[in-house]
Nucleic acid binder design. Sequence first.
DNA 1: ACAACCTCCTGGGGGC
DNA 2: TGCCCCCAGGAGGTTG
Length: 277
Amino acid sequence: MPELPEVETVRRHLACALSGRTLERVRVRRNDMLKGGWRCRALEQELTGLRVGEIGRRGKNLIIELSGTAVLLAHLGMTGRLCVADADAPAEEHTHLIADLCDGRRLIFRDPRRFGHLELCADGRVDDSETLRNVGLDAMAGEFTARRLGEMLAGRTAPVKAALLDQRRVAGIGNIYACEAMFRAGIPPEARCGELSDEQLRRLHRAIRRVLSEAIAAEGTTIASYVTGAGVPGGFRERLRVYGREGERCRTRGCAGVIERIVQSNRSTFYCPACQR
DNA sequence: ACAACCTCCTGGGGGC
DNA sequence: TGCCCCCAGGAGGTTG
């Protein structure tokens, strides 16, 4: 499930394998994987012949700069994969875009569950795109401070965890890292936004930055399908302290707690009742 | 404005 | 062994 660390891992891989290459032949298979009103044929024509420049990221979105002003935006949803493969690699099901590159390899966008999408901004005004117009401050950006986090949560009654998942405020945190950050900050899952103390806000901000940094260094977390650019599982799974660990012992030294699971906004929340109070 | 649902989709796992 | 049902969740939409 690509959250910020997994998307950052993909970004770094594409920066090596894709930047500087020209898209020589492009095939797009499904209109319903495209945003911004694009259709397959028009997108194929628009992309053909463009050269890939820098590759950026905001939250869980990849920002692929192309020749001229064009920018290709990609969201990987739950099961999306954007990778560069050898041209003779076997074709896989659920492949929605194939772009043959000038170096004989090919860019592939594959997404079995189809929660992801692509969008081309021909004029490069990405802030106006469907993909990014509702995406807030990247969780690893320098401007994301404990003070900003406090402003985002002030006066609201929703559970803190639900607010962390809301990409319009801080972008990049999904269910796994929301659970892990809440655990590290020692904040109980039912805590509401407006009732956090300044000390709790500082702890939560630091926990978010640390868990994301560590996960980026480990090339992300693999639960089901995600693999790094090199095609191997991310290394953070074994370092998860609560996510997916219902019924197991808390890993905090000296803690006798057992990890529990509850459902919040239709999502599983894992937590340690002893550490988070 | 905000919060609490619901919906889309497929692969994998559990139960019978 | 096989089949059916349920579950996972990002994000936009709808309802209250």
